[in-house]
Design a protein around this nucleic acid. Sequence first.
DNA 1: TTGAAAGCGTTACCAT
DNA 2: ATGGTAACGCTTTCAA
Lengths: 348, 348
Amino acid sequence: MRKTSTRDIANLAGVSQATVSYVLNGRQDQSISDQTRRRVLDAATRLRYRPNRLASGFFGGRSSMIGVVFPCVDSSFFGRLLFGIQEVCLEYDSVSILSFTQTDPQQEQRAVDQMLEHRVDGLLMVSGVYTGMWFDDVRTESIPCVLLDDRTHAATYDVVASDDVAGAKNAVEYLIGLGHRRIGMLGYNSPLTPVRDRRIGYEAALREAGLEVEPGIYLECEWDETPEGYGTLLFDLIDRYAPTAFFAATDYHAHDFIKAVHQRGLRVPEDFSVIGYSDTELGTGLNLSTVRQDAVAMGSTAATRLFERIASQDRERCEILMPTELVVRGSCCSPQAKGVLAGVGGKQ
Amino acid sequence: MRKTSTRDIANLAGVSQATVSYVLNGRQDQSISDQTRRRVLDAATRLRYRPNRLASGFFGGRSSMIGVVFPCVDSSFFGRLLFGIQEVCLEYDSVSILSFTQTDPQQEQRAVDQMLEHRVDGLLMVSGVYTGMWFDDVRTESIPCVLLDDRTHAATYDVVASDDVAGAKNAVEYLIGLGHRRIGMLGYNSPLTPVRDRRIGYEAALREAGLEVEPGIYLECEWDETPEGYGTLLFDLIDRYAPTAFFAATDYHAHDFIKAVHQRGLRVPEDFSVIGYSDTELGTGLNLSTVRQDAVAMGSTAATRLFERIASQDRERCEILMPTELVVRGSCCSPQAKGVLAGVGGKQ
DNA sequence: TTGAAAGCGTTACCAT
DNA sequence: ATGGTAACGCTTTCAA
């Protein structure tokens, strides 16, 4: 039982397929009599016609699909990004194909391959590892591509990222404003710019406040390291440098830190002030002060940019930096104030 | 500049398009000489051939795409669901189209329309509102469809959901085991089965323990209500029934509850034990005991089921209930134990 | 073992 | 104002 096609409509309405196409697509340059139009529209509803995008994409070279490649969706940050992208897709009457890579180059390649085979109109790469062949593929196929949340290749591609230098700087300045002078940072080993930028912002804030940037006060762990794993390092650092506050590269690292602190019987914020990053649900639960990235706006900005580039390839490359906002919750206080605060987290 | 097609390969290899198709699809029923095969494969790589799925889907009636309709991705629960779905898509060499509805029937209809136009091979509907026409559309188009996380239409469709009756029962039994006798529940107004089932499980646990199910001890708010909004109701309930523990229908409601409790200067778990539901990141941050649903497994089970049904329409309808697991963290204690615990959450 | 040709649903160009 | 027709890339049937 075949689906109804424009030919069926044409037959029922007693017109040609071309006329049906004109009516259905509302083309202006072709004039159709009202009577014909009504007959066609009528036949279409009677036959429950549903256009076949596969066919029109196949013919016209526009699939009305974009490919979205994510590392994962663990974090509510990625969820919100996705949501922003979706909203714009709807506007542009398009649909998005989603893939996850788990930051594995091979999976990333696979994802892009799939999308290219499905002839997506454009590609949105989120926090990619960018080590695969796909990078060349995208160029040789000259498919519109916007990179999201990483500025590494801003020279070559459109990029939408958040202004992490400013976000981190602002967060650390807040800690300084509270009276902290010895502020550590918890980062992780990553080839991507967001983490690097956060460190840059962190150091800039220290320098501008006339504070020394002691190299050992920055603790970098591996991405998958557990708090048990680097707890020792952490307390070595604390013993050696006596920081009173920590800026964490993500809410997850802030969480790990808080866990380690609790394990030693110490408290946040009384003993250490902490700021996280990305305003995830985890941070909400922790009552953690954090740097909010307007992920929905980032997603929609990137998607909009992508659709613009799809519409006209030959426009200038852009690098859009989205502003951040400090969300003040209960994980920070002055280094002097002790024992009067509600506290954060709980025993695990 | 056209993309390379099988015709180009055929020309370069000096064979026909049909032969190219045979080689590329590795068909067994056609025998191809090794020499020809090599020539074709060679030409394909030289021309950087990439199959056009739009074309093959268009022709063969199989798009290698499934449609996934979500209400939102606010929660890490949905993120994990998505991940499970993705994994299976990869296995079946398919791709998923994603849409969000914000539980708005019109957006839901729109999403399904889009997917049907894109000729997805099947549909995965997650926590849908199911009020739209699409319900009929799916039937008349007889497109494979699996419903995820809601059992309302288990009589008509394949359903994969979590065993929320058991999950809730287990959680409440845990509270009873701790010595609680007066246990309230926080739910919200929803037409979907998960919330209703959690209430059923809650009441079953009370009954089986010989405890009375006082109707007023169940507090139902609207989905978008703020803790400020129902705080009064909550404390009315507390005054009237003096519960010592609460079972919340979601981690979000548990969070709201905790906030309200803190606003009154009371504490969790010292004054009230609380259990949430779904094991979200929010709950992790809150150090909240909660009922974990293996969302990744749910997603992959549902997707597997969908692909099976795509492969053969005529198999029996199924209703798969996934087990849950109680995650014990720091939000519960015996009703007697006071003042000795680490506490949960913090001042907002 | 291979090739020719038809057909899928759509759109766009060029006639009428 | 409308219709005929070619073209898109692929698969498959049938014939050689």
